[in-house]
Design a protein around this nucleic acid. Structure first.
Lengths: 156, 156
DNA sequence: GTACGTTACTTGTAGCGACAACCAAAGCGT
DNA sequence: ACGCTTTGGTTGTCGCTACAAGTAACGTAC
């Protein structure tokens, strides 16, 4: 690894360690919820009927099904969401954002948005934002197409 | 948040969620250690005498002291590191990389490096790597100077 | 219609990190 | 020398996530 590469790598893993902690900390303190919980509620909010299947929700939140299941249990216990069996598929479960969930989300929004701006968005130029979006998209592609590929050349 | 901003933000938090998991998974599977443990060993390796104070190690690994303490306990239990009181300061503790720790690190290196290349480094152009290094550096600065500032204007 | 495999979730367990409480040694003022 | 504060670290508890195992419903082949 040359100097440029290790600078980028070290920077990335450092941010990956610190940023989630900072987001969790702010949301936990100000709104009593995890960043992941916040994210789940956010996604639900823009779904039709504020409702989604567990699998779909897990996919769009880049999470695993067990994790989401646990999180939904907590949200349900707090009255922020509720689950009911899917009418069309007896195996599936639907999660729905409750009015309380929606209002909790709305209350949490400004503080979280301010944090996002302060820590990241307002710190970067438009060009840097663009570059960040591109870079993260590329990495996301690699992470999705994971498993054990490794060889990318057509002659592998 | 405009489209550009939300693309960058969403991309970043997604990567922050997936990348650490991927790194942990690979290292756990192939070498039986966490990415953070690997990182700690890596830092120790290049310290004089392969030795560092807990506080200094916590700082350079961007971690908290309690966390590092727990991790060092585990490493010590596995014989990869050992701790001894600092001669110059009775309050302080020194951590040292053992020969076994060094060899475990060396064994884990190639696989981890390959993963880093596959998921991130080889996926990006030199310009993108540069941009990534810059962006993460800026964010790191914001995260460090955290606490409760928020107001940056001289008239705040 | 029944056996088999797959899909969709849930639950239990174990491990790691955050936070707070704690203890001990230094530094400092008097 | 004596307290007070600060610094350096450890320990205990709780909450969250990963992983594995379990359950239930669906689809399909026979």
């Amino acid at each position: 690894m040359n100097e440029q590469e290790s600078a980028a790598w070290l920077g990335l893993i450092t941010v990956c360690q610190l940023l989630p902690a900072a987001l969790d900390s702010q949301l936990k303190q100000d709104s009593g919820m995890t960043h992941f919980e916040f994210f789940v509620l956010s996604v639900l909010r823009f779904a039709p009927e504020q409702t989604m299947r567990m699998t779909a929700l897990a996919e769009t939140t880049s999470s695993t099904l067990p994790r989401l299941s646990h999180v939904c249990s907590r949200l349900e216990k707090r009255g922020l969401a509720d689950r009911f069996p899917c009418p069309e598929d007896g195996r599936a479960t639907n999660v729905r954002l409750t009015p309380e969930g929606r209002s909790a989300l709305v209350r949490a929004m400004p503080g979280h948005l301010a944090t996002a701006r302060r820590l990241v968005i307002d710190a970067l130029s438009p060009e840097q934002l663009d570059a960040l979006a591109q870079v993260t998209e590329v990495i996301r592609g690699r992470l999705d197409g994971d498993g054990q590929p490794a060889r990318a050349t057509p002659f592998g």
